[in-house]
């Protein structure tokens, strides 16, 4: 598919995943309930539920029946590795695109160096 906005549940999933991986939400910390988050964001319960289910499948959060959702205490390294693999895939795609438009390796390296240092 060349252009379709990300579904809302994915946007929410990504936002929460990002916060967990960069430590914004602490390990073992409790997430808002599905219904509370749905209300807060003004979105449907099912959409929120899907985002949580995705996060659970990815091992980022655990559901404790009767208590709610918590950030997994799992091996963070494994998650980082996964995220890095994802970044590498994106980088590969970018290189492919750049080749299409005739960008040389040198040009790319120069740009990457320039922007990497800017931070």
């Amino acid at each position: 598919m060349n252009s379709a906005d990300q579904p809302i549940y994915q946007q929410i999933r990504n936002q929460i995943a990002e916060q967990i991986l960069n430590g914004g939400i602490e390990e073992g910390g409790q997430l808002p309930s599905i219904r509370a988050l749905a209300k807060e964001l003004g979105i449907s319960v099912i959409t929120t539920k899907r985002a949580y289910e995705d996060l659970e499948n990815d091992g980022l959060i655990d559901s404790v029946p009767g208590k709610g959702f918590f950030v997994s205490l799992h091996d963070k390294n494994a998650l980082r590795k996964k995220q890095l693999a994802e970044l590498q895939t994106q980088l590969k795609q970018l290189i492919g695109e750049s080749k299409k438009y005739g960008m040389t390796l040198n040009q790319m390296v120069l740009l990457i160096k320039k922007w990497y240092m800017e931070d």
Binding site: M1, N2, S3, A4, D5, P7
Partner: peptide, 14 residues
């Protein structure tokens, strides 16, 4: 629609 997705002249939207 997804079967047509490879054709670059077509644009798919939600």
């Amino acid at each position: 629609a997804r079967e047509l997705a490879d054709q670059s002249n077509l644009h798919l939207e939600r």
